[in-house]
Design a binder for these strands. Structure first.
Lengths: 154, 154
DNA sequence: GCCAGACTATTAACATGTTAAGTAATATTG
DNA sequence: CAATATTACTTAACATGTTAATAGTCTGGC
């Protein structure tokens, strides 16, 4: 029984909000990872940056932002912090002075490798709780959704 | 070809990060809703609060936080803003002076009803692009994931 | 070589995310 | 019923999300 809000304005139930459903699911997942992030003194976003740099080597700031799903103003502040604490290194691109190249520093690599086992353990726990094949299928579905909504301008 | 980072520290590829996959999908969805949110001068979170109050009537702050997937410190600031702009109203609960009851105000209801058609149009576009049945299945999957990861303490 | 326009990164301003600490009201215990 | 613990909300501090504006840098036409 609603509160009389169903007169004249057709509107789906709040429980059928796709952004909310994705957010709730993501929060449930992140709850598993936050304890060890806190223990190692890095935020979720700082971890994403270190993680991307570990895999990709030296990359441009713009590329790094896309990889980490961060906006460039956020990344700018995050890199300032990570550079100040010695976890990453920045240098101007030789061929284009507008661009900046970023790489993980030894201290960053060391931190990442220390936390990795805790992260992997949580992935195993999640796949056990939800099902390995169902988890794999979810990756596919989420990527398909992303591709389906991609603006044609890209 | 990795960058020599595969020696000794077993770690999944960054592309198989569940938080990242959920975030990317959510951002793709939100990109469809942000233009009209901006046009109506409300943030995503402010909209969630108005949306929940519209459906549920007067609720306690704590309940509202759970409904909107917001932490109470964030909600506290959001409600201060929404109350100052006349979109919601707060009053202490008669039975327990610690609790606060929140309800949508007429101006909030009016704003919500003006934007609702734009929001519904985007939902139709998303369901058309991704498939109505696949969208419904995704809701189910996300809820199952949430339930599977729910800590037993809850 | 010069210049208007495009591109890359940063800064600014305001709102929220996250954790810890604080405040007031209620519930509990001895 | 008084001392204590618990609960609900807020405030504080720092980090990020989001949009707009800024500061260098590069490119193509002239």
């Amino acid at each position: 029984m609603s509160h009389g809000n169903d007169a004249g304005v057709p509107m789906r139930d709040f429980s059928r909000s796709l952004p909310m459903a994705l957010l709730r699911a993501r929060e449930a997942v992140m709850d598993r990872f936050r304890p060890s992030l806190r223990d190692f003194g890095v935020t979720e976003q700082q971890w994403r940056v270190l993680r991307a740099l570990y895999d990709r080597g030296e990359v441009e700031t713009g590329t790094l932002a896309r990889l980490c799903c961060l906006l460039t103003p956020s990344l700018s502040r995050i890199l300032k912090h990570l550079e100040a604490t010695g976890l990453v290194a920045r240098r101007p691109a030789p061929s284009d002075q507008r661009r900046t190249l970023v790489a993980i520093a030894p201290a960053g690599r060391a931190l990442l490798e220390r936390r990795a086992p805790y992260s992997e353990a949580q992935y195993r726990a999640i796949e056990e709780a939800f099902g390995k094949e169902r988890t794999a299928a979810l990756y596919e579905t989420l990527e398909d959704l992303h591709n389906a909504l991609q603006n044609p301008k890209s």
